[in-house]
Simulated scan of single mutants.
Amino acid sequence: MHLSAHISSSAEQLHAAVQTNDAAKTLLLPAKPNGQGAAINGGELLLLALATCFCNDLYREAAKRGLALTAVRVECTGEFGAAGEAGRHFQYRAHVEAGAPAADIEALLRHTDQVAEVHNTLRQGLAVTLTW
C-alpha cells in the first residue's frame, strides 16, 4: 500500500489531498487568515492521524472478532514546545459502544493498540528525509 499527502498554499487558497494507491481524496482545511499556510497545524493533524487510525482499526479488528460496534470515540493529546522541538506526552483514550461484554471490549482495545499501524510507526521511530 503506497500513501501520499499533498498540500499547496497561495493567496488565501489551500488545497490538501491524500492518496492510498489509486484512491485520491481531497480534504477541506481552512487557510490561515493571512493566507500563508493552514490554520490547522501539523501537531493537530498528527494527533488526528492517531485518532483516525485507532478508530478505523477498532472497526476492522471488531469485525474479525464478530463484534458489532455501534459507536467509537477516540481522543488523542500531546504537547509541543518551542519551534524545532519534538512532541512529547502523547496519550490517547478510546470509548467503544457495542452489544458485547466489557471483557470483550477491553480485549479488543488492548489488541487494537498492539496492531494500530500509525501508533506502531511512531513507537518504533522513523527516518523522515527531505528530498528535492
Score class of each variant (00 low, 15 high):
A24F: 01
V72H: 05
T70S: 15
P101Y: 00
L46R: 02
L48S: 15
C76K: 00
Q114S: 12
C53W: 06
H2T: 08
T112V: 07
E75R: 11
L58M: 11
T121L: 15
K32D: 00
N34D: 15
L14V: 09
A82F: 03
T20I: 14
A16I: 07
Q91E: 12
H111S: 02
G35E: 05
V128F: 15
C53G: 06
A16F: 09
A107C: 08
N21Q: 13
E44P: 09
T70H: 10
L3A: 11
M1Y: 01
N34P: 01
V118T: 12
V74W: 02
G35A: 02
G81S: 10
S4W: 00
G125E: 08
L130H: 13
N34V: 05
A98C: 08
F54S: 00
N21D: 15
R123N: 10
L67Q: 06
H111A: 01
T26M: 09
R65M: 10
R93G: 09
V74C: 02
N41R: 05
H89M: 07
A86T: 10
C55V: 01
A11I: 04
L122E: 02
Q19Y: 02
K25I: 14
E44V: 08
R88G: 09
E117P: 12
A23Y: 09
Q114D: 11
T70D: 14
A51Q: 07
T77W: 02
